[in-house]
Design a protein around this nucleic acid. Structure first.
Lengths: 210, 210
DNA sequence: ACCCTTGTGTGACCAAGGTTACACCCCCGG
DNA sequence: CCGGGGGTGTAACCTTGGTCACACAAGGGT
């Protein structure tokens, strides 16, 4: 575990901080599809990604879902800081996009390290910046793109985050992520296939146009 | 100016920091409708709002606009920090919603105060948190609400930020903010009027249902 | 080999909202 | 007092995407 910490965070944090993280951090594994954090959950730990990928979802009161963005190793969930300061409850859902290893740090440490380590402050600010940018991109997507473009972008993003141009999923799953219906996704996928941008097979899709 | 600083930021920042801010800050006035910061602008100052209100807009490459949120006195533009760390260029446009007074702080100071003042760090994190929450709300609006609801929400938000249930604007302006067309806004406003939620007059709208 | 579950394809239809075109009204300036 | 520009109302039409219904196909278990 210390290896992976060193590997993904070694160039960000100074030695003593890495030691502290390793000391207080609780290792956790999440298998693909499992819910790591749900909307309304109280937040007591902040996750650092060591391995794998996570997708962050938003849900409204009718249960409609929307994918916000993916997190990869080296990332953390800036939303969590946010929540530590505010309502203390999660505003989002985090689901393991594939098998994932996390290091859970008690939120109390955040404050302490904030005063103690310059690199931690920088890390927090960087995370906020990255997350802000991702959220902005999400807004752009929703505001300015049509469903067909959103779909293609989603497939490309998903391929990137899994390092595999072959996406194992169903039309229904995609429909949930994009907050639309299965029929619409089937329709548009067909269109994208005719345009030569994807290849469809049962339960998996190959993205040609990456 | 020092009065307003004390008034709106006095309870956040300690005395010495207030002094420093007053010392290096450049006072600036922006009259209603003027562009305070544009997309692509290099960022060298961070604005603190002393008086008035600002609206933050996003634009795509086709020139389509979308209002992200409003800022009021006591707020700052978290996007600006973001930009200070990243591309150095503004990702958004800021327009004075009404006559506004700003205090422009050189971005170099941010780093310095970050190490020096605990209250400044807290302020920056709080700002990020608030902005994050607002952006999330924007996403919700786009993803889950229909145009009629978005319109009503927009009018209510605008009324709040201007402390006036009577909104001076045109249908075209609203259409720009919501990234739709004037015709659609006229149509929906008529509907809202019939439902007793607003009253329409030439060049101004009264929000009944606040 | 048969069923059953899960995943897909498709036609028909509907609703929201975008587009075009044009009439009209208010108000201000000459 | 009349001409013109900005603001608004509305009909007609189109496109996108959401809904419903149902057929069919692939693969796994018994």
């Amino acid at each position: 575990m210390r290896d992976k910490l060193q590997q993904h965070y070694g160039y960000i944090f100074e030695g003593p901080l890495l030691d502290e993280i390793a000391q207080v951090g609780i290792q956790k594994k999440a298998s693909q599809g499992s819910v790591i954090m749900n909307i309304g959950d109280p937040i007591s730990y902040m996750p650092l990604l060591l391995e794998g990928a996570i997708k962050i979802l938003r849900e409204d009161d009718q249960g409609d879902e929307l994918l916000l963005y993916f997190l990869e190793k080296g990332d953390t969930c800036a939303m969590t800081f946010s929540c530590c300061m505010g309502h203390q409850k999660s505003e989002i859902r985090a689901v393991a996009e594939r098998d994932t290893e996390l290091l859970m740090v008690p939120v109390g440490q955040m404050e302490v390290w904030m005063g103690k380590y310059r690199s931690w402050r920088q890390f927090i600010l960087d995370s906020y910046h990255t997350r802000m940018t991702e959220l902005l991109e999400t807004v752009d997507t929703l505001a300015f793109m049509r469903m067909e473009e959103r779909l293609l972008k989603h497939l490309q993003d998903k391929a990137k985050v899994n390092h595999d141009d072959c996406i194992v999923t169903t039309h229904q799953e995609i429909a949930y992520d994009l907050n639309t219906s299965r029929v619409v996704i089937s329709r548009l996928l067909k269109k994208l296939e005719k345009e030569g941008k994807v290849e469809m097979h049962r339960s998996h899709i190959k993205v040609v146009d990456l």
